[in-house]
């Protein structure tokens, strides 16, 4: 269980994250949703000690995380940020092996290699194992980083937009893997995600943020509601129940005629 108590982050005059207090339940998938600039990623960075908060505290099972030693924390929580550019000459397997660093400090034993193999097969990366990172596509690379996080084998896993660069197939695959990690290994998964339908289908709990504040947090059925989402995203959203899942439909119902005119003009010209 992670408790946030009055977390704030101020850049200049702007409160990017403003007095956020929320609890994250153990053994669940919790999604942070909200429009761009709502402060989701900043909040995630503060929960995982990548960024110092200006006020408030993060309690991990009752203890302030800033007081825990960093290497002990690395066995409890793992964080994967959204931009992962790397110039290093490093192979897929070598990168995933770094997930074991908190345990092995660079000297891998048998058990470490087993866990690395497992993470590789979890993410279906066997065929790329010996390729260099810079030879992979964006989606493949994303899967490698997630494999590294899985190899870290922590109770809490934080992923900042894990579906970035992924096609539908791999997005679904990753969400299923996350659910499996919760189901089989009782992991606690916290993700920042933009696609509200993925959030709706695969989360237990949802925290919706807007303008640096928590707009609402609770079970997904309490959050995926027309009035609530319309208020957060400031657009028309309809919610349909398809195969028992709440699906948000947020496309224009009426086509914009001016677009057709524009295309016709272009064709004529």
């Amino acid at each position: 269980m992670i408790d946030l108590k009055g977390i704030s982050k101020i850049y200049g005059q702007k409160k990017v994250v403003n007095d956020v207090s929320v609890s994250i339940a153990k053994g669940k998938v919790t999604s942070f949703i909200g429009p761009n600039g709502a402060g989701k990623s900043t909040l995630l960075s503060m929960i995982t000690r990548l960024l110092d908060q200006d006020s408030g505290e993060v309690l991990l099972e009752g203890k302030n995380i800033l007081q825990a030693p960093s290497d002990a924390l690395a066995k409890k929580i793992a964080i994967l940020k959204q931009s992962n550019h790397m110039d290093l000459k490093i192979t897929v397997r070598e990168l995933i092996s770094f997930g074991r660093f908190p345990y092995s400090k660079g000297r891998l034993n048998e058990r470490d290699h087993e866990i690395i193999d497992e993470a590789i097969s979890y993410m279906e990366l066997e065929e790329f194992e010996d390729r260099y990172i810079d030879e992979l596509s964006g989606g493949q690379r994303q899967r490698v980083y997630i494999a590294m996080t899985i190899a870290q084998d922590t109770e809490y896993i934080f992923l900042d937009e894990p579906l970035n660069n992924l096609d539908m197939k791999h997005s679904v695959q990753i969400m299923q893997i996350l659910r499996r990690l919760v189901r089989e290994r009782n992991k606690t998964i916290i993700i920042v995600i933009h696609d509200i339908n993925f959030a709706s289908c695969y989360s237990d709990n949802i925290v919706a943020m807007k303008d640096g504040k928590v707009a609402i947090s609770g079970k997904k059925d309490d959050v995926i509601k027309k009035e609530i989402l319309e208020d957060i995203y400031e657009m028309d959203i309809n919610i349909e129940c398809i195969y028992g899942q709440q699906i948000c439909v947020y496309f224009d119902e009426h086509e914009d005629a001016s677009v057709d005119d524009f295309i016709e003009d272009q064709v004529r010209a």
Binding site: L50, S70, K75, K81, F101, G106, Q152
Partner: peptide, 20 residues
């Protein structure tokens, strides 16, 4: 020297892996 390898991954990864 192992922690130098980790630092080469960048600040976020290094902190995540327990480097101060």
């Amino acid at each position: 020297f192992h922690s130098l390898d980790v630092i080469a991954l960048g600040r976020d990864h290094a902190i995540n892996l327990g480097i101060n």
